[in-house]
Design a protein around this nucleic acid. Structure first.
Length: 518
RNA sequence: GCCGCGGUAGUAUAGCCCGGCCCAGUAUGCGGGCCUUUCGAGCCCGUGACCCGGGUUCAAAUCCCGGCCGCGGCACCA
């Protein structure tokens, strides 16, 4: 084994091919297995799958929300079905939608590669919910509860408001009164008749529609046009059916909601979709919670950059840090639809991202906290021709360095004695100077000289790389070689021997970037 | 507290439905080597897991029972 390890990889492969050709077949089969994506969807048939992603536009989405979005999209595509995007904005009071969030969510989804075929906004479909509320009342599946607070007590002990027993005509009359604005908040609600002895009290005669004073809490899209609003469970049931949704993929926090929603399907005689609930998805070391992020933003003005701060687990934050959409897709597809919770490790996401980035990102030299040393090259000049990417040697820049010029090295490299400056030549560090030994690469190899990154002082660009560490930034200050100015914001680079980074801002000749990962 | 759902290496996942091919596969991490004008990538080797306890069985990660732990829900939120 030791012998085999000491061989050149090419030699290893050659020997393998010669002696054990069947072993080389093996990886290909495994590779195919690894690419086999999601498990089949129960009850799915080609062309007959409709999925949906239904966010509340009260904030941007995070990587946990990306799971249902990506999975829904992926399954719809897998079966050549459709995907619906539906904004669930039916609570202008406690989960007030934000006007900008609709677009921010669309943008995040598009960036993630999620394509939807239809889009709906629930606050624009109020008449649909009203007519179905009427339908429920007509059929005796629901009633108008006029008991207010008392109902909660009643329901807790398996009883209900006396209006539950009234006939449909009476219910419809009350319903019209609700719509006419004759009742205030809390005075009248429409409840769905369920099993009053259901073990979960919240399921017992759950509320389908309630009154919200939109004069006080206007909705960002429809203002105070409506006072009667459907609850999540009612709106979802109606819409999922009307939109032909066949498969609902959502987190397990919705398990109980599924039970509630089934009452609506039963009332109308609709066939319910297949419900699939999966566990929570967290990203190690990141804050994902809407409320927490909002609080941090409010309580520390100036400390955070916004909802897309790279220290947050929002899609926008990960994007700003330099994570690629494809990396997020891959890890989410790998996690799949298990009911258990999953905590993505950062190193795992980083590894997937690195693999993708490595093929694409140009290599540029950035020297943190440089030591400037004067070059002594026998009075002459040297030119370093360095490819931007090892796989594309034809694209390269030239850096010219003459005797008397200064170049910057990291403190550590400057204390090494003899080094090879990448692309330039071999130098001895002595008395604060860099003395040229020769330019032979073979020499550097035979002496096993460290091959290091560097920057000329002339034209060096001040650069700051911000590395997210929990809720802080570790700031790396230094200088990058002049070529960095060829890249604008949103460029993703590999800073040689430092790590991957995404340029966030280039202002007055200085660059600010975020450290993505090693 | 009540209801529901889960527990495979540091992390994620395969296998569990239909017990043997699993002294458990893969990815990532970690350790080492080779290669390479990067401490990156690639290649090779190694490392490390079936929550615990009973039971059924010739045979259990897989089936049954009990326990422990984790998560979710218990809104006129979504």
């Amino acid at each position: 084994m030791e012998w085999a390890n000491s061989l050149d990889p090419r030699e290893q492969e050659r020997l393998l091919r010669e002696r054990y050709p069947h072993l080389l077949e093996e990886p290909r089969r495994e590779e195919r297995a690894a690419e086999r994506g999601l498990p089949p969807l129960p009850g799915a048939r080609e062309g007959g799958v409709v999925t949906r992603f239904a966010p509340n536009p009260d904030f941007v989405i995070h990587i946990g929300n990306a799971r249902p979005a990506i999975l829904s999209h992926e399954y719809a595509r897998m079966y050549r079905g459709r995907m619906v995007l539906r904004f669930e904005d039916t609570d202008p009071r406690t989960k007030t939608p934000i006007r900008e969030a609709y677009d921010l969510i669309r943008e995040d989804l598009r960036w993630l590669g999620v394509r939807w075929d239809e889009e709906y906004i629930q606050s624009l479909r109020m008449e649909v919910f009203y007519s179905h509320a009427r339908g429920m009342l007509e059929r005796g599946c629901a009633y108008v509860d006029l008991c207010g607070e008392e109902s909660r007590e009643l329901l807790r002990s398996g009883r209900a408001c006396h209006t539950r027993e009234r006939e449909p005509e009476w219910q419809l009359e009350q319903w019209d009164r609700m719509l006419a604005g004759e009742y205030g908040e809390g005075e009248a609600v429409v409840r769905v008749k369920t099993d009053l002895s259901h073990p979960n009290p919240s399921v017992r005669d759950w509320v389908a529609l309630r009154i919200i004073d939109t004069e006080r809490y206007p909705h960002p899209l429809v203002g105070s046009r409506y006072r009667v609003w459907p609850t999540y469970n009612f709106a979802v049931s109606v819409d999922d059916h009307l939109m032909g949704v066949t498969h609902v993929l959502r987190g397990k926090e919705h398990q109980v909601n599924t039970e509630k929603q089934l009452y609506v399907y039963r009332c109308f005689g609709w066939e319910p979709p297949v419900f699939i609930h999966f566990g929570r998805l967290k990203l190690e070391g990141f804050i994902m919670s809407k409320s927490k992020i909002r609080r941090l933003l409010e309580e520390n003005p100036g400390k955070f950059l916004g909802y897309d701060d790279p220290r947050f687990g929002t899609i926008a934050g990960l994007r700003r840090r330099g994570i690629l959409a494809e990396a997020i897709r891959r890890v989410i597809l790998e996690v799949g639809v298990k009911p258990g919770d999953a905590t993505l490790s950062w190193s795992n996401l980083a590894a997937v991202n690195r693999k993708l980035l490595d093929a694409a990102a140009d290599r540029v030299m950035f020297v943190e906290d440089p030591v400037w040393l004067e070059v002594e090259a026998g009075g002459g000049c040297l030119e370093a021709e360095i490819p931007y990417h090892p796989d594309r040697p034809e694209r390269r820049r030239t850096i010219r360095v003459c005797s008397g010029d200064e170049v910057g090295l990291t403190r550590q490299d400057a204390s090494r004695g003899e080094v090879r400056l990448m692309g330039l030549g071999n130098f001895r560090v002595a008395q604060g100077r860099l003395e040229l030994v020769n330019t032979s690469l073979d020499y550097a190899r035979s002496r096993r000289l460290p091959i290091i990154h560097w920057t000329p002082r002339r034209g060096a660009v001040p650069m700051e790389v911000l590395e997210p560490v929990e809720l802080e930034f570790r700031v790396h200050r230094g200088y990058a070689e002049p070529a960095i100015l060829e890249y604008g914001p949103d460029s993703r680079l590999q800073l040689v021997r430092f790590g991957f980074a995404r340029i966030d801002e280039v202002a007055s000749g200085a660059v600010r970037a975020f450290y993505t990962h090693p």
